[in-house]
């Protein structure tokens, strides 16, 4: 639909910095087939064969009023086979982000919900504008956020992860900060961009080797290293989500959620 017109993911390389920008603002950067494909290609670029060519810092941001509102549910309603596929791709994508050699900074304005929140949680450092929101409000469409629980557990700790994954709450940026999901909240988008640019610049000036070793060691210490190899925790978690997606309950909840939303619009 939009793939021919303009890219849904924009890549900008400047020395050791790679900026990945989600660029489907009309659909609040919802994760659909085209966006997934382009993000997967972006990660190929972020992790080249020759490690010396790899960026040492990545900023993951988004154009528009929302960072990423989750899966493209319209596509999922039209094609029942898509939802489990999307879950699988999201699991793989988040595992790959965590395993990247670069330090990944999420730059979040507006909604980062469900799959969008999962993307953010797989990053190393999260900066957000005050209007940003986080959470996994997926139970109302009969879906489980299990796919992102391994990283969520490691990031937020057991108590907070349980609350976030079970409650469907949508957390404002300040609250997400107090729970450890976000490291820094900025008054507005301008301040957010300024702070992320300054952080990226300071990280680019550091030794790539030490940063890489430190990130890999943190992955090992907090248990997210296992998410780097497919067939491990994330795959089991993704399977749990996929199993739920395939139930009749999930189908009917998603359909009725979508009908209600269309009726409102």
């Amino acid at each position: 639909m939009t793939t021919d017109e303009q890219p849904q993911v924009i890549l900008q390389r400047s020395g050791r910095l790679l900026t990945i920008t989600l660029n489907d603002p009309r659909r609040r950067n919802a994760l659909g087939t085209a966006l997934f494909e382009q993000l997967e290609r972006a990660l190929d670029e972020a992790n080249p064969r020759d490690i010396d060519d790899a960026p040492s810092v990545i900023v993951l941001g988004a154009n528009g009023s929302a960072f990423c509102a989750g899966f493209d549910l319209e596509a999922c309603v039209q094609d029942a086979t898509l939802l489990p596929l999307f879950v699988e791709r999201l699991g793989r994508l988040t595992a790959r982000i965590r395993a990247l050699p670069a330090v990944v900074i999420a730059q979040v304005q507006g909604a980062a919900l469900a799959g969008g929140c999962a993307l953010v949680m797989s990053c190393d450092i999260v900066h957000a504008a005050a209007d940003a929101t986080f959470g996994y409000p997926v139970h109302r469409i009969g879906v489980s956020p299990a796919v992102n629980v391994p990283v969520l557990l490691a990031t937020a700790g057991l108590g907070a992860a349980r609350r976030i994954a079970l409650s469907s709450e949508i957390l404002p940026a300040r609250q997400a900060e107090s729970l450890g999901l976000v490291q820094c909240v900025h008054a507005n988008e301008g301040a957010l961009h300024g702070a992320v640019a300054a952080l990226a610049e300071s990280l680019c000036a550091k030794s790539p080797h030490a940063l890489r070793a430190t990130k890999a060691w943190l992955n090992q210490v907090d248990g997210t290293e296992a998410t780097g190899s497919l067939g491990s925790a994330v795959d089991r978690a993704a399977q749990a989500t996929i199993d739920v997606c395939r139930t009749a309950e999930a189908r009917s909840m998603l359909d009725s959620f979508w009908q209600q939303r269309r009726a409102r619009m």
């Binding site: 450092i125 990031t155 952080l199 300071s202 943190l218 210490v221 907090d222 997210t224």
Partner: peptide, 13 residues
């Protein structure tokens, strides 16, 4: 916690 530790150790300073 792991999230804040990541931000602190990778950013240095």
């Amino acid at each position: 916690g792991a999230g804040p530790a990541r931000a602190m150790l990778l950013a240095g300073g």
